[in-house]
């Protein structure tokens, strides 16, 4: 079972990595986490994104946002680039979320099949 001592080890690793990171990140990834999002399954999506970022260290931040007003399309993931261009991915699940990171955030290729047209 994990203990808080394990956290200390983790802290040292995280510290090294944070100090290597410089400047702004390329993308901001937003997950809708209002009642509608959560009920539709946004929590596993957000968790998958956080998990993938911990593993792959993508050039992005993952944050939560409120209701975007398109509750029927939840879970929604928005990807914002540095120019403020926004891509809205709809009906996302944990698997699609990782694909979005791999394709859009890592390789810069939009996944049109999942995005709102």
């Amino acid at each position: 079972m994990k203990t808080l001592q394990d956290l200390q080890k983790l802290r040292d690793e995280a510290k090294k990595r944070v100090s290597m990171r410089e400047g702004d990140v390329r993308y901001r990834v937003l997950v809708g986490m209002a009642t509608c999002g959560i009920a539709a399954g946004a929590r596993p999506v957000l968790n998958a994104l956080v998990e993938a970022c911990a593993k792959e260290h993508y050039d992005c931040t993952v944050t939560q946002t409120g209701c975007i007003g398109m509750c029927t399309y939840e879970p929604i993931v928005e990807v914002l680039d540095q120019d403020g261009k926004k891509t809205t991915y709809i009906h996302v699940d944990a698997k699609k979320a990782v694909e979005i990171l791999e394709s859009h955030v890592k390789n810069g290729i939009l996944l049109e099949a999942y995005s709102l047209q």
């Binding site: 994990k2 808080l4 956290l7 983790l10 802290r11 995280a14 510290k15 944070v18 998990e51 911990a54």
Partner: peptide, 28 residues
Amino acid sequence: DEIKATLGDVSIDEPEILLFIQSYVQEH
């Protein structure tokens, strides 16, 4: 606050820290 005291200047919302918290809580 206990977690933050252990973390020092590392932010609690770093992905690997969040994952640790998740499984730490769930395991207990």
